[in-house]
Simulated assay, not measured.
Amino acid sequence: MVRLYTEDLNIGYGDRSIVKDLSVVIPDRQVTAIIGSNGCGKSTLLKAVTRIIPHQSGAIMLDGMSIAKENTKLLAKKMAILPQTPESASGLTVGELVSYGRYPYQKGMGRLTPKDIEVIDWALEATGTIAFKHRSVDALSGGQRQRVWIAMALAQETEIIFLDEPTTYLDMAHQLEVLELLKKLNTEQGRTIVMVLHDLNQAARFADYIIALKDGEIVKAGTNEEVIRRDVLKQVFNIDAEIGRDPRTDKPMCITYNLIKGESVEHEKGHSAADLGATRTERMQQQQQQSAG
């Protein structure tokens, strides 16, 4: 059974269209990575699917119901999101921050129940942060803080977790630490993980399913073998990539790449000088739009 999917989804800000007629299925109990250049609509898609921002038209369906009609607390029991830049947790202890994940289950005065405390401790244990429970969030390293935010998402006890660039600002070791944790949550607990990633090789290594976006539209969606390909990356990122195999996982990986120069590519196709000028103008407009996004 398909739990989460979109149909002809359109998202924008004012007159500016970001995501266009997008129909996609999110595989249940798998790790899905969304890739694409800056400004292509990755984060916008995540925000719309989790109802942080409204969509203009189309549908986002979860368990056979439009999320637009779902009760907020019921929806928060089904999906959790870790945004790209989490809100400040200054002054809070780790335990206090993670306790916010229990909000959908609280009633009346909002006091924590024995069940809430049990789930909070479990989330801290699962993310390896139980030793920090009474420590200030401000005193933690970047990797530790990211794991604590993931613990808060786990405390919601949702089956679907969305993460917007969870490895941003982390060094290589902490990036690997976070991604291995997410993969473990998927394989051992059956959590559906959906995350935006910039690193193609991280997406290929940790994701079961990859969605490649360009200008708010899907270029390719499928397994890492189907998406991490020279022709797909050329279309999505305008790069000429050399694809090899990861010696440790045997999954495809981008070994190196060159930026494709628009002029030379068009010249090889025999386009006129006027066409080349139009191409340069379009590219400059795209870059301006991406910078604005």
Rank of each mutant, 00 (worst) to 15 (best):
P54V: 01
Q84M: 14
I117H: 08
K261Q: 12
K251E: 05
C254Y: 01
E268Y: 10
M61F: 07
G108R: 12
D246G: 05
V98T: 06
E87W: 03
G95D: 08
Q290W: 07
E177M: 15
G64D: 10
I52P: 05
L170R: 07
H174I: 10
R283C: 02
I150A: 00
G58Y: 08
P104W: 00
R145E: 05
V194M: 00
V219E: 02
K220H: 04
Y5M: 02
R145H: 09
I34M: 02
M172R: 07
R135Y: 03
Q288V: 11
T127A: 00
R111G: 07
L200F: 14
T85M: 08
T192N: 10
D246H: 12
E125M: 13
R16M: 12
L22P: 07
K220S: 09
Q146L: 01
V232Y: 06
A221L: 07
T187R: 12
I34Q: 03
R29D: 02
W149K: 06
L46Q: 05
E242M: 13
Y13N: 12
V232L: 01
D138C: 08
R283I: 12
S90V: 11
E7P: 03
M109W: 14
Q235E: 15
Y169N: 13
Q144V: 13
I160G: 03
I150V: 04
D171F: 10
A126G: 00
I243D: 05
K42H: 06
L200V: 07
L62N: 11
V19D: 09
I161W: 06
E159F: 07
D15M: 09
Q285E: 15
L182Y: 01
K78W: 08
L92P: 03
N258I: 01
A278S: 03
D121K: 09
G108Y: 03
I52F: 04
Q156P: 10
N258S: 15
G12Q: 10
A278Y: 04
F162Q: 02
P247M: 04
